[in-house]
Amino acid sequence: MKVDTVLRLKDVPGMLIKALEPISSHGGNVISVTHSREEKGLVSVHVSFKVQDQSSLNLIRRALEKQRIIISEMAIEGRTYITKKSLSFILVGHVIDTDIRDTIDRINEVGMVSGIEVVMPAPNQKSSVLMDVEIDEKSNGILLSLVEKICKEKEFLLVRSL
């Protein structure tokens, strides 16, 4: 079956090869690769390939996810299967001191934190943290309520995107 994907890759050398490798190693036959540059240090690459069956495709997906490569869109035989989108938000508060690892881990259970930038004026002042999260379009609401819950718990101000 024919699979069309859009992969979002970090704009660093070698990333594309790293992304194509799991496809061919699980029996996928790459038909075309086109890519367009984007902001924020990420590039979108359209990759089309043929694969034997669903189980091979699942192996490919898992391998890509393991490498933290974002599959932002996937269509099988022309039928859209998943669409991911990238959400950004800023947290203002004591984001570092309230276990930022825990914050990220909890968000990663719903989506995937793909970018993070911290501004910390002074140790005991509030910091501002911008996060980019890749998420299945369907899980948008779940992510939002999770982030709101974390913000309430840890007393952050949430500034989410429109």
Partner: peptide
Amino acid sequence: AIELAGKHGFVIKLVGDVNGLEVSPRL
């Protein structure tokens, strides 16, 4: 927070949203 937003291509605005019944600062 405003500077951080700016670096990532956003501004912060106070947005009222009738559907969401919500007033909040947004990117």
